[in-house]
Amino acid sequence: MSEQASWKFTPTHFALGVLLILAIAAPLAFGSYHHYLASLCLINIIIAIGLNLLTGNAGQISICHSSFMAIGAYGTTYLVSKVGLSFWVALPMGGIIAAMFGLALGFPALRLRGFYLAVVTLGFLEMSQLLITELPSITGGVRGMPASRPALFGYTLASDLSFYYVILAITLLAIWCAYSIINSPTGRAFDAIRNSESVAQTLAMPLSRVKLIAFMLAAFFAGIGGGLFASLVGFIDPLEFGLWTSVRYIIIIVVGGLGSIVGSVVGAVALTVLPELLRDFKEYNELVFGVLLLAFLILIPHGLVSVVPRIRQRLSGKTNSQPAISKHGAGV
């Protein structure tokens, strides 16, 4: 009750409201190609938020995020098509299975850090790729596996628009969860670990538990994203979850802004839409993308989220406050 009393309608709330209304209303004016892209944006938001919790907030490197996504995608699809579970049960279960693997991977992270941890996650990625190709009875192997769209209240969400709204709801839920986590004691423990493990330890923080939680959360978000991805595309194959996919999520959170939910959101949207906008460059698409990315990083090294405070500063003429995000730089 007391919280309600202190709640005030600020311009930020207004902007968020407008965005939400746009997210709900705008797709009605477009076709299935755009619904599909918008859904991909949302799925990438969910997955990027997870990685950002792990890397941006807790400071742990992972280059096997695409493996967690794969586990969620294959897990959910398998539970639906072979076990016969409802999608709405299978999806969280896929996330939980991914989280279990995240937990398992978290243990080496208790002893390793930096590059050494990165190499272990790379090994995990290789292993998951090998398992997908070598277990064709479960995963369809290199031939890939078809996935179906779920039904809601008796209606199959066959159209991309109806599925978009479902994904939108799940994304909002994911954003809310991540927001609550960051503002909880666990979230503050993430920050402490990132800034200095030894300081965190002297403050009697349960270091290992916090690290394991970070890995589990990241894997869970990726698993949910993966499950939705499989159902949206309708077909999954191992190539879709390779190293480049992991790298793409790292690019997303760096471009958006490390340790920031808004950063994950804008980064995911920007990097999902950009390659589509560059379609006219044909075979030069990736080249142009690389040049744009490099130029962006040189000009705006702290990510898209650092732009707004800077503009606001310019407008109000203040110069004292540092962009809040800069402190995340040290946390590798």
Binding site: Y33, Y36, L37, F229, F235, D237, L239, K282
Partner: peptide
């Protein structure tokens, strides 16, 4: 009209949807 799919099923689906609908 030729679109790139980068040998990925999800990108190929995007390309085909663009070709068919846009």
């Amino acid at each position: 009209i030729f679109e790139d799919d980068g040998f990925s099923p999800s990108r190929a689906l995007a390309a085909v949807k663009k070709l068919v609908e846009q």
